[in-house]
Design a protein around this nucleic acid. Structure first.
Length: 860
RNA sequence: GGGCGCUUAGCUCAGUGGGAGAGCGCUUCCUUGACACGGAAGAGGUCGUUGGUUCAAUCCCAACAGUGCCCACCA
């Protein structure tokens, strides 16, 4: 006896365990079969599942399952990212609670602790993935700091260095004073901030001339080495080349001319602090200015500045210096100002531009092939417009700062001799050999820095396949067919995978990049902890089951939309949908003839009108869902699935089988259609479809390896579809009569039907509209002559309203047809269709008139 | 400052150059041989505004107004 309500909690864990132990998620490279490979974007080991994973990872699971059912050699390759700065930040916080510090512990102890942490908490997100029903090839799980992947990192670093593409140099970098590390440009975010624009007067020695500069960061003024104006600015032309005294520091700085200065901004004069501002840095380089550092790695004031400021936090220094300037009479005014502040995407700390000796990767030569691959169509983006984003970024690419001052990560394969000569090698032994050979020493000290976490993830699609070894996996599964990710990491990750993949694995890493929408809450706000609007997928699973959670999320995905406002009501509806499907099985089981033993369509001659209709509709659904999945239209697929199963299969077909005449074919057809349907739905809702599939006759052990339904194998009958549609309209009309005329459901109404009406149609009218047929009132063929009998006064009202409506339609149509130029300029088929419609309205109008006339006669 | 989206029923969203759709919510009716996580019938939109193209615009184009995202060195 099947339970009345489908209970996801009762089946999901059991089915997942079955899949995992039977190995359906696992594949081996097979040159004879068409591969379908997706590399999972590695979630951070600090990660917790959130709805973003729902929208990005569910499509990967759907596509992998779909292509597996298509018979392809499908595999989804999982793995995790060590997430250097993010993980280290979590650890440092945890250690702080124990009164420990990173530096106090020392590198080895800290790293040991980090590995412990990874062992203990690193897989939490995988547990959520299992609950969601995701089926990656767990046996192939990888971690960016696995020995193999780390070896790949070293190999790439050394190769790039030997080619001169990696170099060490002092540059102005994005510094995170909290994480005490550099960040790449892509890891910097800009936040709106309410700041103050301070206007400060810099005067000449004799105080005869002065310039007012505007700044949001007065604390950096101690590092000023010039005042810059635009070369064409008449106001300041005669000042260029003179010197001004830097307030509070009593140091002289030149006035210079540089085209980078905006004349319209502020006073048109800008203080130049080359060591703490990117624009100023470039001006400084052009004019060969000194670049004194006045803020240190902790964000504290430092350097050759008045002693009172040394050691002061940069934020405190801002207030102190502003007030000192005021006392000195140099502060002209302060005004509220709204600007954007650079913030670390890792720690949230305000970025401090800092001059620093770091390692960089030259990007231009790497970017060229990556651009070509996009331009010649080797790599395509879905939706297309994201390709232009990718293109523009690569066209304006800048060198990549790859070194980080955190410990958790891949330590640079760089050693220094006592003289400070750098030795870059894949191993310490190799480094010693080179050092001996080139510098006559083996006393080496390793660079303490680690690599940007995106350096290792940039190698992901080939490092997880065993590169640099020429493994079978690498040969058959590279490039991948699809990469699915969100648009915020097109630069950080996608572009780098393409550049590094083309350089080192010899080919593009994937053919198609599918960009999923960002998830917002139901009011369009970004989900964030501080807003308290974060939705935990596990809570949704708890409430609705994994299938409904997936279905609800995916149903809202539309290709061209870049935003997904999550609406929990869809998950609820999806749960009810699953229950509805479940009850379809119960219906079949409840039939006297029971569930058929095999999947077998009845002979064609036996098929009823309703059978032909539902099979034709199934065929169309197979075509639509297949096309939708091929086109990444997951929302469209979900909509089609739900409307077919609920409205066509359950509400119409299933109800139509409740006549004695249908008894011959109903069980086989119901079963056949439902079996095909759950296969169509399985990629999106794996659990409930498996449960239903197993409850019906089937071949094989699991629906996960069942074949995808083929439209061509399903019978189609256009005539039956047309007749049945007409019947549906008649039935709806009859029901509307009933509701409108307040006829009790138990009370039968009467249809006048042509005496030659197909008896099956008579049955269906009876069953679906609770109506008696009254044959003999022979009118024109088909269903057109079916009319409903009801109390006359009410009928007359109804017909009169119908008359008005139809008259309007006729008038509208006539007007359109007689509009100037319509008949001449509109396409012939459009005109013909309009004429047909008009004829139809006229016929219906005539019928209503006739009915009204008869009513009048009988009421007289 | 550039670039890219979005604006359709109370809510969340589909959709199409030729008579406005779904789900939820709401109203009324119904426990009819699976399902009340159900069935039936309804009410509810001048498709953001203004122009333009067209025989015809919710759909194409332009401007404007909201709104969101990405990029960028406006101190």
């Amino acid at each position: 006896m099947l339970a009345k309500t489908y209970d996801p909690a009762a089946v999901e864990q059991r089915l997942y365990a079955q899949w995992e132990t039977s190995g359906v998620f696992h594949a081996e490279p097979d040159p004879a079969r068409r591969p379908f490979i997706i590399s999972m974007p590695p979630p951070n080991i600090t990660g917790r599942a959130h709805l973003g994973h729902g929208s990005t990872y569910t499509p990967m699971d759907i596509l992998t399952r779909y292509h597996r059912m298509l018979g392809e050699n499908a595999d989804w390759l999982p793995g995790q990212d060590h997430a250097a700065i993010a993980t280290e930040a979590v650890l440092v916080r945890e250690l702080a609670r124990e009164g420990l510090t990173r530096d106090g512990m020392g590198r080895d102890a800290f790293l040991a602790r980090a590995w412990e942490w990874r062992e203990e908490y690193g897989d939490i997100i995988y547990e959520a993935f299992r609950r969601l029903g995701f089926g990656p090839d767990w046996a192939r799980d990888r971690f960016t700091m696995d020995p193999g992947l780390s070896a790949a990192v070293n190999k790439v670093f050394v190769a790039l260095y030997n080619e001169g593409l990696i170099y060490r140099g002092t540059r102005l970098v994005n510094w995170d004073p909290k994480a005490r590390s550099t960040l790449s440009d892509a890891e910097v975010e800009y936040e709106d901030a309410d700041s103050t624009l301070w206007h400060i007067r810099y005067a000449s020695d004799d105080r005869k001339r002065s310039v007012v500069v505007a700044t949001t960061r007065p604390e950096t003024m101690l590092g000023d080495t010039a005042v810059a104006v635009h070369p064409d600015d008449e106001r300041y032309r005669d000042l260029v080349g003179t010197e001004l005294v830097l307030p509070l520091a009593s140091r002289k700085i030149p006035v210079i001319a540089d085209a980078a200065v905006e004349r319209e901004f502020g006073t048109g004069a800008v203080k130049v602090t080359p060591a703490h501002d990117f624009l100023d840095y470039e001006i400084g380089l052009r004019h060969d200015l000194p670049m004194p550092t006045v803020i240190d790695v902790e964000g504290k004031m430092t350097g050759d500045i008045p002693a009172k400021y040394i050691g002061m936090d940069r934020n405190d220094a801002r207030r102190a210096i502003a007030s000192d300037l005021e006392v000195a009479g140099a502060l002209v005014k302060r005004e509220p100002y709204r600007n954007k502040v650079a913030v670390s995407s890792r720690s949230g700390e305000v970025i401090e531009p800092l001059l620093s000796l770091q390692w960089f990767c030259r990007m231009e030569t790497l970017a060229k092939p990556a651009l070509d691959a996009y331009r010649d169509g080797s790599i395509r983006f879905v939706p297309e417009r994201f390709g232009r984003t990718y293109e523009q970024w690569l066209e304006n690419i800048r060198d990549w700062n790859v070194s980080r001052q955190v410990w958790w990560g891949h330590q640079l394969p760089v050693w220094y001799t006592p003289n400070g000569d750098a030795v870059v090698a894949e191993s310490e032994d190799e480094a010693r050999r080179i050092a001996q050979e080139r510098h006559g020493t083996t006393a080496l000290e390793r660079d303490p820095d680690t690599l940007d976490t995106w350096f290792s993830s940039g190698l992901w699609p080939f490092s997880i396949l065993g590169w640099p070894q020429k493994t079978r996996e690498l040969q058959h599964w590279y490039p991948n067919q699809v990469m699915i990710t969100s648009r915020e990491i097109i630069f950080l990750w996608v572009a780098r995978m393409v550049m590094l993949g083309m350089k080192f694995a010899g080919d593009i890493p994937f053919e198609t990049v599918f960009i999923t929408p960002l998830v917002f809450d139901e009011h369009g706000r970004k989900m964030s902890k501080s807003l308290g609007n974060v939705v935990d997928p596990l809570d949704l699973i708890e409430a609705y089951g994994a299938d409904a959670t997936r279905f609800g999320i995916v149903q809202q995905m539309r290709l061209e939309s870049q935003e997904l406002r999550f609406d929990e009501r869809l998950c609820k509806k999806a749960r009810e949908f699953n229950n509805k499907l479940w009850n379809a099985v119960r219906y079949i089981a409840s039939l006297p003839e029971g569930v058929p033993a095999a999947l077998q369509l009845p002979a064609d001659a036996q098929l009823t009108l309703a059978d032909r209709w539902i099979l034709s509709r199934l065929r169309l659904t197979v075509e639509d869902v297949t096309a939708a999945l091929d086109g990444f239209e997951f929302g469209v697929a979900a909509d089609r699935l739900m409307s077919f199963a609920w409205y066509e299969y359950c509400d119409w077909y299933l109800e139509a089988t409740k006549t004695p005449r249908a008894a011959v074919t109903r069980a086989p057809i119901l079963t056949y259609v439902l079996n095909a349907f759950v296969r169509l739905m399985h990629p999106i809702a794996p659990f409930v479809t498996e449960e239903i599939w197993q409850a019906l006759p089937h071949e094989g052990a699991t629906i996960a390896t069942a074949t995808w339904p083929q439209a061509a194998e399903i019978p189609r009958d256009a005539g039956a579809v047309e007749t049945f549609s007409e019947l549906m309209k008649k039935i709806e009309e009859a029901r509307a009569f009933r509701a409108e005329l307040k006829i009790a459901p138990s009370q039968k109404i009467t249809f006048d039907v042509p005496s030659d009406l197909n008896p099956e149609l008579v049955d269906l009218l009876k069953q679906l509209a609770n109506a008696e047929a009254h044959p003999g009132a022979a009118r024109a063929g088909g269903l057109a002559g079916v009319t409903v009998e009801a109390p006359e006064a009410l009928l007359r009202d109804r017909y009169e309203r119908e008359f008005v409506k139809l008259s309007d339609e006729v008038a509208r149509s006539e007007k359109k047809l007689s509009a100037p130029n319509f008949a001449d300029k509109a396409p012939a088929d459009v005109v013909a269709r309009e004429r047909e419609k008009l004829e139809q309205y006229r016929r219906e109008l005539a019928r209503v008139e006739e009915a009204l006339a008869e009513l009048a006669k009988s009421m007289r």
